[in-house]
């Protein structure tokens, strides 16, 4: 329905692509978030316990981190329980919305009814034409992640112009541009304009890399 992310419960949503048998992990990939939250909480706990406290103010520097730790442990556990009790739809169905706002509240405030929900559901972007094994396209995300990691690793040895142009080219390619030769030019132009505009005019120091050593 509507503006939202009210995802149907897992059982109901196996409909169109219900061939594969749901196993325990189906619709529960959100455990990644639980893991991140626990990791953050454990990191804060270790940091708080081993903290080399300076001074002796009454609520010291460990006081607030302890509160944050409690919040993180609590919320991670509650989230895990919620995921176990009601998994989301399997990964390969479309679930729009960003979760930023309570759809229930907006529904009440806006006196929304059937017609708005339908108008929104008929939005073209939400008609699935094909289904995939996972909701996210991990191949594209992986290429992109590899690209930014390589950029950061090579920025100082290669210099801004070359590494930024390569990053531009790679992202454009991964996101579906089909003009690889032309894009080399676009990328080089883009990174050089930035070097000139921000490096020379606004005085940012961008690494020049080996190109700078030669000249």
């Amino acid at each position: 329905m509507s503006l939202t992310q009210h995802q149907a419960d897992a059982g109901a949503a196996t409909g169109p692509q219900g061939k594969r048998k749901p196993h325990f992990g189906t619709g529960r990939s959100e455990f990644v978030v639980v893991a991140v939250l626990y990791a953050a909480a454990v990191f804060l706990t270790i940091g708080t316990v081993t903290m080399n406290v300076q001074g002796k103010s009454a609520p010291g520097p460990q006081f607030f981190p302890i509160l944050v730790c409690i919040v993180l442990y609590l919320v991670a556990t509650l989230l895990a329980i919620q995921i176990i009790r009601s998994p989301k739809v399997p990964d390969n169905s479309i679930h729009p919305g960003h979760g930023q706002f309570s759809a229930d509240m907006l529904h009440d405030l806006g006196h929304l009814g059937q017609e708005e929900d339908e108008a929104y559901d008929n939005a073209p972007s939400q008609t699935p034409t094909k289904t995939w094994k996972t909701y996210s396209d991990w191949r594209t995300v992986g290429v992109l992640l590899g690209g930014v990691v390589a950029f950061v690793a090579l920025l100082e040895p290669l210099g801004w112009i070359i590494s930024a142009a390569s990053l531009f080219w790679l992202v454009a390619y991964a996101l579906g541009s089909r003009r690889p030769i032309f894009n080399i030019g676009v990328g080089l132009l883009f990174s050089s304009v930035i070097q000139l505009a921000f490096g020379a005019a606004l005085g940012l120091s961008l690494p020049s890399g080996f190109v700078g050593v030669i000249f």
């Binding site: 034409t129 094909k130 995939w132 396209d137 991990w138 594209t140 995300v141 991964a174 996101l175 579906g176």
Partner: peptide
């Protein structure tokens, strides 16, 4: 990136 090749 996670959706660009999938959303119509």
């Amino acid at each position: 990136a996670s959706r660009i090749h999938r959303d119509p």
